[in-house]
C-alpha cells in the first residue's frame, strides 16, 4: 500500500517520463530531461529560500516559480536545441548526457547554489502530501489533456511523421527543425516545472538531483511503459518509481530484482506495457459485454 508521499514521487516520475517522451514522439532520443529538471529545482530553491517565508509559502508563489522556471528552461532549451538537434540517434543521446553532466557540475560549483550541501529549508506550500498530490496530479491531468489533443493536431502529426521518416517529412514541406525544436522546448519546460514541485516536496535541492542516473531511469520509464502512446511513460513512471519501494520486503535483493525488471522488461515487452494494440483493444471493448 503506497502512502501519499510515495504517490507524489510516482506522479513526479510520470511527469519526467512524459518529458522524455516528447522529443521521442518526434523521433529524437534526448536524455536532457534531468538537466532542465535540475535547473527548475535550483531556481525554485533559490527563489523560495531568498524571500523570507518562515517555513511556509503561498501556492501562488510556487505557481509563479513554475512560470519563471518554464520561461528559463524554454530559453535554455532553444539555445541548446538549435545546434544539438542536428544530431541523431545515439549521438543526440550522448550530447544530451553531456549537457546533464555540465549542468550538474555547474550547480555544484556556482557560488550561490550551496555547493555540495545544496540549498535546504525550502518552505512548504502544503501541510500534507495530499496538497502535492493535487498540484502534481493536476499538472499530470493537464498534460494528459494536452497530449491527447496533440495526437490529432498538426504539430502532433508532424512529429509522428518525422518519427517515421524525417527526410520524407522534409520533402512534404514541413519545417522539421521547428517541429523538433518545439518538442524539445516543451520537454524542457515540463522537466523544469516538475523540478519546481520536486524541490518543494524534497525540502532540499542539490546537484545530485539531476544526474546521469536520473537520465537513464527516466528513459527506462518510457521504454518499459511504452513509447508509442503518451500513456506509456505515465504508467512506466508511476510503476517504476513505486517498484523499489514495493520490493522492500525482499531486503538486500531488492536492487537485484529491480535490475532484472529493467533487463528483462524490454526483452519480453519490446514495445513496452502500453502498446497501440492494447489501446485499440481497450477502445473496442464494449461495456455491455460485461452484462450477463
Amino acid at each position: 500500500m503506497p502512502d501519499n508521499g510515495l504517490l507524489v514521487q510516482m506522479i513526479l516520475g510520470a511527469l519526467l517520463g512524459l518529458s522524455v517522451y516528447l522529443p521521442m514522439a518526434a523521433g529524437q532520443l534526448s536524455l536532457a530531461t534531468p538537466a532542465f529538471y535540475a535547473v527548475g529545482g535550483t531556481l525554485a530553491a533559490l527563489m523560495a529560500t531568498h524571500a523570507d517565508h518562515q517555513g511556509t509559502i503561498s501556492l501562488g508563489a510556487v505557481l509563479w516559480e513554475m512560470v519563471v522556471a518554464g520561461a528559463l528552461t524554454a530559453a535554455l532549451a532553444t539555445l541548446v536545441g538549435l545546434p544539438v538537434l542536428r544530431l541523431r540517434g545515439i549521438y543526440l543521446a550522448i550530447a544530451t548526457i553531456a549537457l546533464v553532466e555540465i549542468v550538474r557540475v555547474a550547480i555544484l560549483n556556482l557560488p550561490f547554489t550551496g555547493g555540495a550541501t545544496g540549498i535546504f529549508g525550502i518552505p512548504q506550500p502544503f501541510h500534507h502530501p495530499l496538497g502535492y498530490i493535487t498540484l502534481s496530479g493536476g499538472l499530470l491531468a493537464l498534460c494528459g489533456w494536452a497530449f491527447q489533443r496533440l495526437e490529432t493536431s498538426r504539430l502532433g502529426r508532424a512529429m509522428a511523421a518525422i518519427r517515421d521518416d524525417e527526410l520524407a517529412t522534409r520533402c512534404m514541406g514541413i519545417n522539421t527543425t521547428r517541429v523538433k525544436l518545439s518538442a524539445f522546448v516543451a520537454s524542457a519546460v515540463l522537466a523544469g516545472v516538475t523540478g519546481v514541485i520536486a524541490a518543494h516536496y524534497l525540502n532540499t535541492w542539490n546537484a545530485r538531483q539531476g544526474s546521469f542516473d536520473v537520465a537513464i531511469t527516466t528513459l527506462a520509464f518510457v521504454i518499459l511503459g511504452g513509447s508509442r502512446s503518451w500513456l506509456g511513460p505515465v504508467i512506466g513512471g508511476l510503476l517504476l518509481t513505486a517498484l523499489p519501494e514495493l520490493l522492500r520486503p525482499v531486503g538486500d535483493l531488492r536492487l537485484v530484482l529491480f535490475g532484472l525488471v529493467i533487463l528483462l522488461g524490454p526483452v519480453f515487452f519490446p514495445q513496452g506495457l502500453i502498446t497501440p494494440a492494447l489501446l485499440e483493444k481497450l477502445g473496442r471493448w464494449k461495456l455491455r459485454r460485461l452484462k450477463p
Binding site: M24, G27, Q28, L29, G89, G144, Q148, E151, T152, A160, A161, R163, D164, I223, S227, R228, S229, W230, L231, V234, Q271, I274, P276, L278, L279, E280, K281, L282, G283, R284, W285
Partner: peptide
C-alpha cells in the same frame, strides 16, 4: 523505439479506437 511503426497506416476506425482506448485508460 524511435520509429512509430506505422501510426499513419492505420485506418480511421483503428485510430479512433486507439484514441478511445487512451481516454479510457487515462480515466
Amino acid at each position: 523505439m524511435l520509429r512509430s511503426g506505422g501510426l499513419n497506416t492505420g485506418s480511421s476506425d483503428l485510430l479512433s479506437a486507439r484514441r478511445r482506448g487512451s481516454v479510457r485508460l487515462a480515466g
